[in-house]
Write a protein that binds this DNA or RNA. Sequence first.
DNA 1: GTGAAAGCGCTAACAA
DNA 2: TTGTTAGCGCTTTCAC
Lengths: 349, 349
Amino acid sequence: MATITDVARAAGVSPATVSRVFNGGRVTPERAERVRRAAADLGFSPNRVAQSLRKQRGSVIGLLIPDIENPFFTALARGVEDAAQQTNLSVVLCNTDEDIEKERRYLGIALAEQMAGVIVAAASRDRTDLSALAARGMPVVAVDRRPRNAPVDAVLVDNQHGGEAATEHLLAGGYRRIACITGPAATSTSEERLAGYRDVLRTALHDGRVPAPPTGDPLTAWVRHADFKVEGGRAAMADLLAMETPPDAVFVANNLMTVGALTALREAGQTPPGFGVLSFGDVPWAALVHPSLTTVQQPSYDLGFTAATLLQERIGGTNTPLRTVVLRTALKIRASTAGPAPQDLAASP
Amino acid sequence: MATITDVARAAGVSPATVSRVFNGGRVTPERAERVRRAAADLGFSPNRVAQSLRKQRGSVIGLLIPDIENPFFTALARGVEDAAQQTNLSVVLCNTDEDIEKERRYLGIALAEQMAGVIVAAASRDRTDLSALAARGMPVVAVDRRPRNAPVDAVLVDNQHGGEAATEHLLAGGYRRIACITGPAATSTSEERLAGYRDVLRTALHDGRVPAPPTGDPLTAWVRHADFKVEGGRAAMADLLAMETPPDAVFVANNLMTVGALTALREAGQTPPGFGVLSFGDVPWAALVHPSLTTVQQPSYDLGFTAATLLQERIGGTNTPLRTVVLRTALKIRASTAGPAPQDLAASP
DNA sequence: GTGAAAGCGCTAACAA
DNA sequence: TTGTTAGCGCTTTCAC
């Protein structure tokens, strides 16, 4: 592998000059040309490791996501990658598996590899610790999920609003016993979507538009926390269906749990829209699901693209105050929430 | 950030001793303990960039895959990651997008970052160029797809056999006009799966078990090449259905194209098993697809795990001759190939 | 505009 | 077993 010194010798200049040619320093055109030719001849390409060591900063950005098998995050990753192309930073994808320990390890690696910056969808709102990076002055952008008390830029969606819109829509469709399957309580997105659900439901209960469940806190009885995975969604839905007074619709807080919930419904012989189903986030290959699913659409790609853009600004040295960008979701109405089955309507008082 | 020199000073030893403590050199227990304590106090963790520069080899392995949005590859990636944990190498995921140029860039980065090794699912059988890595002595393992003439270890599945089993099964189910939607001709997996289809079909034509299509080469008439993506599968299926004598079953060479093909079938008012559908590779969230799909199951996770294991052996310095590991696929029979509709049976002579 | 020289943090060869 | 020393390939003063 040719080094900068080899090129310098071949071009009859000093290594410093070669470096300048490749980094936009001032060099007379004639010598620059000689250097470039020599470099091409030798197949030289600068050693990024040496560059990183010397500059105390690499040209890789780390992207920490909790579930590489969730299409939401792969779309987000694509957004990050596309944005990163612009500055020829490369992206390292790290799958944290919703595991705080794995996440901690990867953050350590980011530090040890002197990465240029990190984009993180935090495994936990409270336990994700970004302080070491901050201390080192490494730029960090939080994406999708907001870690508490971390002094970082953030790119999020309007989760609460999405949760509200979803629940309103189910109410408007005639459903009266609306359940919610949300994610881990330690995740900001879970809680915000749930909060949206609760706010709308509270009002509806107050108005008398909706009956209270026979037992328990009406804002809790039909709520289940799961793990954002398919199997978790299935189990939660099965649990809801086994209740004495089961719900007649469900708002599911992410795409994979919706897949699980639909499976459980089918096993129980229920189908939308007789039983209403609304998913936060598009279900992958939803075209194959019948009936088509009403969803709160997430701008997953843009989430990634925006985060990478902000990060690159910081890496470039921007000193603006911390920014939080909130991207809009949109309710996409399809068939799965068209209204409860007639017998259900008759049965409700 | 504390350096090895800081730790050395704090512990009253030389930097070399500190290095030895962290790399398994011989150090008296007492001093080793002092070093460890000092390191802990200072929050020291070795600078991986400096390590890489000095050792001329990093602790990152590159994984180049053609489509990060395909669950087959994300499962494979998980396998790689899990295997890599064992030697605490980290994995950089690079999405080449089936684009030979992007792939070339990433291979260059692998070199410039002095990665420990590379696992690659080649974008092209003929045009993927691994020679620069070979020249540099960087270990490489090909996974899923075999690049031609590259002197590297490979981990593959028995594509041809899978294609044969699939076609046999459709024949046995009573389908008589079996189409094949395969991937790009430049990809080894496409061609091998197609070869399996053709071999079985050729025999069946010869035996007279199957009628030749009215026009064209019987081994080509019902074959379509697409791009391994959903939309490509949809278009290919639509094209097949528009034929004067359309097929009555299809063998689709990958999971995403199957999603597309199913969409096209639905649009045309056809449903399995009346129209037989068999997918090479599991369709994501297949549980939601009705009827359930017969598939050639791929060991995607193991593909990745095995590849990473081989790679790590090479990185460790194994000098065994080149190995090709072929993993078995398994035909998983479900409902989508249960046999053609009665009227079709009646109609065929 | 150019080159000489120092040094980023670490490890490996050698000497003690 | 331990320390000293050199150097991985690059960028960046600093002097010219």
